[in-house]
Design a protein around this nucleic acid. Sequence first.
DNA 1: CGGGATCCCCCCAGATACTG
DNA 2: CAGTATCTGGGGGGATCCCG
Lengths: 123, 123
Amino acid sequence: MTALEMSTRHGETCPLDTTLNILNGKWKSIILCRLMNHELRYSELLRSLPGCTRRMLSLQLLQLEHDQIIKKEIDSSFIPIKTSYHLTELGQSLVPIIQAMDNWGANYIKTLNKKKSSNAIVR
Amino acid sequence: MTALEMSTRHGETCPLDTTLNILNGKWKSIILCRLMNHELRYSELLRSLPGCTRRMLSLQLLQLEHDQIIKKEIDSSFIPIKTSYHLTELGQSLVPIIQAMDNWGANYIKTLNKKKSSNAIVR
DNA sequence: CGGGATCCCCCCAGATACTG
DNA sequence: CAGTATCTGGGGGGATCCCG
């Protein structure tokens, strides 16, 4: 089921939910981070995601592909075959949002840490 | 467990993950949408979220509160007591991101629909 | 190398009942 | 009114094996 179908099955479509459904997934956001600058092969992605199983990587990649955020390229002229993944145009258009969320997250973390240390002083 | 703790327990902290952990949750995004413009009471929120159980609403509100995105106000001078929820400053700072994600989602949906109809013509 | 199929466990969330 | 407590099942995800 695509992110779009997920967010439209309840009657009214909430575009925000569609976006979150696309990014929602244990490894999707970090996968997109990895693919932001250059394409990567399956095994390269796997190695760059400590703790991610092959099953999970495949599932997450499949969903991102169904949502047309990434595209798979297969080079079967060699054995063993090589596959690589890269962002589609739609995926590229998501990059600014991802960066904005990353920036916001960094600021959020800083703010919380600041609060914590000032609380420590009060104590 | 807060969104920050969730995203830091694996060693390296990914701010993007922190942000997504905050928004990640079946009802959180739509709750934030409801609270974007004005505070709301618990029962008002519940009524504005068809399909959301009281249990789920309580859990989601609790998490958003722990992440310091929203704040609960209790007026116990009356019986029955009245509680209301509103965005914190941190929560307010998230609004532009939410709107950007909403806009992107709307465009995404349009793009997919356009593709689908052009495919229909080809067929 | 790059997956898919299968089994299985645990946790999330729904239903229901109770409370200050 | 504004929540908690308890029980329960269904699905997400890990482990393992298989395949082109």
